[in-house]
Nucleic acid binder design. Structure first.
Length: 214
DNA sequence: CCATGATCATTA
DNA sequence: TAATGATCATGG
């Protein structure tokens, strides 16, 4: 397995800025919506390939891997603004209780993230142009880290005192704990699948990250 | 089977 | 329009 550093990944990705991701998806054999079903994750998968990754096994970055994230941007007036929040990582209630912010998956992913701004052209977007690639260096903004940590601590505290079910997307100034379950009904049992959650970066955080990286 | 990819739908 | 909660296809 080949190791791709963040710098290499960024270099690879930058070569694709301005290109249509849908065409690239076809080249790499990634299903988009061609089959009649839409794959909501296809942009992320394409970007991972473009960065030089073979496949993404991104759970628990054991040291020297990085996270690749895409963010949908839409044009508000003349300014590019994040359309939506961005998933960071799944929340494991046990680990959330056990780990402080700087020991968490959330942080270890956040600090090694490579952001890709992708133009969003509406529902079931057929084309997706790669707008910009940025990596994050949080070391240059202590204040922001502190505030993110505060959100993490708040969410962790709430988990301990009120339980996993008490968490909502309302919590947190920069990050939030939104639901991210598999959703739907288990066709075998007919039961509802358990609700899971993930850390999300709010749009304001995404915007700030791109400002820092610029 | 389930975590991961990220978007879609609904409501205030 | 923005924010929150819910959802689906994919890959290992």
């Amino acid at each position: 397995m080949k190791i791709v550093t963040r710098a290499t990944a960024m270099k690879n990705l930058k070569g694709y800025i301005g290109q249509d991701l849908r065409k690239l998806a076809l080249v790499h054999g990634i299903t988009t919506y061609e089959t009649g079903k839409q794959n909501k994750g296809w942009k992320g998968l394409v970007l991972e390939r473009l960065a030089g990754l073979q496949t993404n096994v991104s759970k628990a970055p054991n040291g020297l891997t990085y996270e690749l994230k895409s963010v949908a941007f839409r044009c508000v007036c003349d300014e590019l603004t994040p359309k939506e929040t961005m998933a960071i990582t799944m929340i494991n209630p046990e680990e959330l209780k056990a780990h402080s912010f700087f020991e968490s998956h959330c942080w270890s992913k956040l600090k090694t993230i490579v952001f890709c701004a992708v133009k969003w052209n509406g529902k079931n977007s057929e084309a997706a142009e790669l707008l910009k690639v940025a990596s994050l260096d949080f070391a240059e903004d202590d204040g922001l880290i502190k505030e993110i940590k505060a959100d993490y601590d708040f969410i962790r505290d709430k988990l301990v005192s009120e339980g996993f079910d008490a968490l909502t997307g309302k919590d947190g100034k920069w990050i939030q704990a939104r639901t991210k379950g598999i959703g739907g009904i288990n066709p075998h049992t007919g039961q509802r699948r358990p609700v899971t959650r993930a850390f999300y970066a709010r749009t304001s955080l995404v915007k700030k990250i791109f400002e820092i990286a610029s």
